[in-house]
C-alpha cells in the first residue's frame, strides 16, 4: 500500500478474549494488520486460529462471553473498540459489511429476499421502498443473478447455495461499503461457483476501491486473490507480508508446513506432507511459542513467546528460528 494514503482499516494489537467457565480463551491475542483502499488481505489459518473472531471484532459483533480487551481497530482513524453501540450500528452494513461462511444460514428463512435487501437500505437512509427495490435489483444483477426482479420475490429456500451466497454478497455490497470482511465465503461452495464469485468480488473491489479482508484456510484462494497475507496460529499472527513473498519463500515453519501440505500434481504418488500434532486448545496453550510442540525447528529459545521481527518488503515473522533467514534481510527499527 502506498504510504501517502492512510489505510481503510488498521488493527493494532487487538485482543479478544472469551471468558468461559473453563478459563480465558485468548481467541485473538495481539493481532495487528492494515488494509488500504482497494486492497485485499488474506487472513489464513486453521479452524480455531482466531480468524473469524478477528472479523467479528472489527464489526463489533463478538458474542458473549467474548470481549475485546485490548488494542485498537482504526477505521479511517476512528477507534471502533471505544465506539458506542449506536455508532457501530451506523457503520455496520454501510461502511463495513460482512459476508458469512455458510450461505444456507445467513438469510432469514421466513423473509423474502426483497424484504431482507430493502431493510438493509432503509436501516441507514430514508429511501422509498420502490427506490430501494430498484437498488437491490441492480446489485443482484451485478453479482450475476439472472432475472433479479423475479428473484427478489423469492424466499431463500428457493435458491441454491451458490445463489444464496451471491445474495449475501449483494447485501454486503448494497451500501457500497469501504470495507468487506468475508469469512470463508466460498468454503461451502463448489469449485466452479467459487471461481466465479472470487472473480466478481475481485472485480468489484478494484472498481469501487473497497478494501477486503478475506478469511480462509484455502491458500490457493489467497494466492489468486489477495495482495497481502496474514497467517494466524492460535490467536496470533505468525507471519505476514505480500502474498508472493510469503507463498514463494515462507519463513515461519507453520506457513511452510501449510504450503507443503497443499496437494499438487507434481508430487504424484508421494504421501502428502503434514504438520504433526493438532492445533492446541486455546484454553491450554503451550508455554512459549504456541507452535513449538509441532515444530521441526524447535529450540530452547522457543520456551519464550517470540516477538515480531521485521524483514525487508514489510514482512513480519513471529519465530525464533525463521527459515531462510540468511537470504532475507532483517530490518531493525
Amino acid at each position: 500500500m502506498s504510504l501517502s494514503e492512510s489505510p481503510t482499516i488498521e488493527v493494532k494489537d487487538l485482543k479478544t478474549y472469551f471468558f468461559t467457565k473453563g478459563g480465558i480463551a485468548r481467541a485473538v491475542d495481539g493481532v495487528s494488520f492494515s488494509v488500504g483502499r482497494g486492497k485485499v488481505l488474506g487472513l489464513v489459518g486453521e479452524s480455531g486460529s482466531g480468524k473469524t473472531v478477528t472479523g467479528f471484532s472489527i464489526l463489533g459483533l463478538v458474542d458473549e462471553p467474548g470481549r475485546i480487551v485490548g488494542g485498537e481497530i482504526l477505521y479511517r482513524g476512528e477507534n471502533l473498540v471505544s465506539a458506542s453501540p449506536d455508532r457501530m450500528r451506523e457503520l455496520r452494513g454501510v461502511n463495513i459489511s460482512m459476508i458469512f461462511q455458510d450461505p444456507m444460514m445467513t438469510l432469514n428463512p421466513v423473509l423474502r429476499i426483497d424484504t431482507q435487501m430493502i431493510e438493509a437500505l432503509q436501516a441507514h437512509e430514508s429511501i422509498s421502498k420502490d427506490d430501494a427495490r430498484q437498488r437491490a435489483r441492480d446489485v443482484l444483477g451485478q453479482v450475476g443473478i439472472a432475472s433479479p426482479d423475479e428473484r427478489l420475490r423469492s424466499y431463500p429456500h428457493q435458491f441454491s447455495g451458490g445463489m444464496r451466497q451471491r445474495v449475501a454478497i449483494a447485501i454486503a455490497l448494497l451500501n457500497k461499503p469501504d470495507l468487506i470482511v468475508a469469512d470463508e465465503p466460498t468454503t461451502a461452495l463448489d469449485v466452479t461457483i467459487q471461481g466465479q464469485i472470487l472473480y466478481e468480488v475481485q472485480k468489484l473491489c478494484s472498481q469501487t476501491g473497497t478494501a477486503l479482508i478475506w478469511i480462509t484456510h484455502d491458500l490457493s484462494v489467497v494466492a489468486g486473490l489477495a495482495d497481502d497475507i496474514c497467517v494466524m496460529y492460535a490467536g496470533r499472527i505468525v507471519e505476514q507480508g505480500s502474498v508472493n513473498s510469503v507463498l514463494d519463500k515462507p519463513m515461519h515453519p507453520y506457513t511452510d508446513g501449510l504450503i507443503s501440505s497443499v496437494p499438487s500434481r507434481n508430487k504424484r504418488g508421494v504421501p502428502l506432507a503434514q504438520i504433526p500434532g493438532m492445533a492446541p486448545s486455546l484454553l491450554k496453550l503451550p508455554k512459549g511459542c504456541s507452535f513449538g510442540p509441532r515444530c521441526a525447528h524447535f529450540s530452547n529459545a522457543c520456551d519464550s513467546i517470540p516477538d515480531i521481527s521485521n524483514y525487508e518488503n514489510g514482512r513480519q515473522i513471529r519465530c525464533h528460528n525463521p527459515l531462510g533467514a540468511g537470504t532475507t534481510l532483517r530490518v531493525t527499527d
Binding site: L61, D63, R89, V94, A120, A123, H124
Partner: peptide, 29 residues
C-alpha cells in the same frame, strides 16, 4: 443464536426490527 440474526446485525439493522421482524416471525411458527 442463528447466523441470520448475526447477519441482520451485520447489516446494521436496529435491534427492534431484528426482534419484531426477524425473531418474531420465526418463533410464531
Amino acid at each position: 443464536h442463528q447466523d441470520y440474526i448475526k447477519f441482520a446485525r451485520a447489516k446494521g439493522l436496529k435491534e427492534q426490527r431484528i426482534i419484531l421482524v426477524h425473531v418474531l416471525k420465526n418463533i410464531l411458527i
